[in-house]
Design a protein around this nucleic acid. Structure first.
Lengths: 250, 250
DNA sequence: TTGAATTTGAATGTTTTTGATTGAAAAATG
DNA sequence: CATTTTTCAATCAAAAACATTCAAATTCAA
């Protein structure tokens, strides 16, 4: 019996019974104890199982992983407030663009009862959007595996055939000289395009984003309205005549 | 026995059994051990299988956990066979289109070790694709909540900027006069467009699809190759000169 | 038909896998 | 706690599978 076939049988048995003895496997595969031992060692190295005295057992069942959305939103009531605030700006019948990202994701449940049409480049938003029966268009493009965002020329192309009443963008840095910035140039292009297609543009940003700048510029400060939830006096004064800032009132 | 015929037999056996021994193949093809070894080496280079000591195994040994989608289609071993067969047609470096749908979804794990670029309109495919580190482009368009497929003019537009070596489509009906048909006109348009952008087009269809017709025509029979796993004599005869049919198991 | 190119199968020596054996380590038993 | 039994890792020789080479057979093109 060939090695992969034995390995497959071992894993299979484990799947059914949670634990197997070496003796059992010796019979099932009609090979020697030594061979089975070697198999188990190898499979253990591949993280397919755990060896135990006399046999092998399943690895500790994978702990249910929270979605990125739930994870990051959990410790940030702040973001939830901003998202809710942003959703209130949306009118019945609006066609809006929602950027990929965690903060913008939180807007979705609040759009429930508005007859909006949403365009997005965030794949992670889809489940929530369809669940709330929101008419959704996805832009095309290259899938960025890490952030599940759509980027690249395909996305820009796709976007160019839409026009928005409003767009809602996440951002990494808001800086007096640098403007709105984000680390990935590909994502920046998409944001920039969405912004240029919108009548009104909104940036969702918690206080940590102010006076920060990262690699790629999305737009100048005056091109979008900032939605935030906290703002110290001095900072507000600096930004005052450069851009419009709307602060969530608690 | 000619080389391509041997190769076909080897792939075929693998599709059935996950793993084959060299001895087995020597008998089945009545050629020498050396020849079979050479065949296996070549097929391995083409990423059609993996050599193991004593024989060969499928690239994707399915000891790993099945996703929900894969699970739900599991009772249909038939579909799995067809999907595996389809995946073997894909060469290293190909740019392919994978249609939304459950049968086509099952192809994904088998593409694991080929350097393919995938374009798809199936949102449900994304997780599996990114998990297997496959470069993926999503077409844009309206999200069909039920099937999680992307359709509409956005999808057609998006698609039009790509060209494919091969495309793999699911279908609802294969009929002598009606050709390839599917219930939703929107999805039919997308399939048609993908087909027209491909050098070669493949339809994945189990036997239940033959001699059925539904509402929207995708293409004429001669425009694509049918991959199926079962074919009764009479039916095969009818279709013979209208289209090419490749059957998984004889 | 001839000659070159390819494919094939046998022969070679090498590498990998295998199962038995060993004494050490770990569990089970009294 | 000591003893017995089981399981373990390490070692080794035999067997199986391997890559490589080469000559014969086949295919292809001129």
């Amino acid at each position: 019996m060939l090695t992969p076939e034995r390995h497959r049988k071992i894993i299979e048995r484990l799947g059914e019974k949670q634990v197997v003895t070496i003796q059992e496997l010796v019979e099932a595969t009609s090979s020697s104890e030594s061979t089975i031992r070697r198999d188990l060692s190898q499979l253990q190295k591949e993280k397919k199982l755990k060896r135990v005295h006399g046999g092998a057992s399943l690895l500790h069942q994978k702990s249910e992983e929270l979605s990125i959305v739930e994870k990051s939103a959990r410790n940030s009531l702040e973001k939830e407030r901003i998202a809710n605030f942003a959703a209130m700006i949306v009118n019945d019948g609006d066609c809006i663009y929602i950027d990929a990202g965690t903060t913008t994701h939180l807007m979705i449940p609040h759009l429930k009862d508005k007859a909006v049409t949403v365009v997005t480049n965030g794949i992670s938003h889809l489940e929530a959007l369809t669940e709330h029966q929101i008419t959704t268009y996805l832009v095309g493009g290259l899938v960025k595996p890490k952030t599940k965002a759509l980027v690249g020329s395909g996305a820009l192309n796709s976007l160019s055939s839409y026009r928005f009443d409003k767009c809602f963008l996440g951002i990494n840095g808001i800086h007096l000289e640098a403007g709105f910035t984000t680390p990935d140039p590909e994502e920046a292009s998409v944001k920039r395009m969405a912004l240029s297609l919108s009548q009104e543009a909104f940036i969702l940003a918690d206080h940590s984003k102010f006076n920060e700048a990262s690699f790629s510029k999305v737009a100048d400060l005056h091109e979008a309205v900032i939605l935030t939830n906290e703002m110290d006096e001095d900072a507000a004064y600096d930004f005052e005549d450069k851009t419009e800032i709307r602060v969530v009132t608690p």
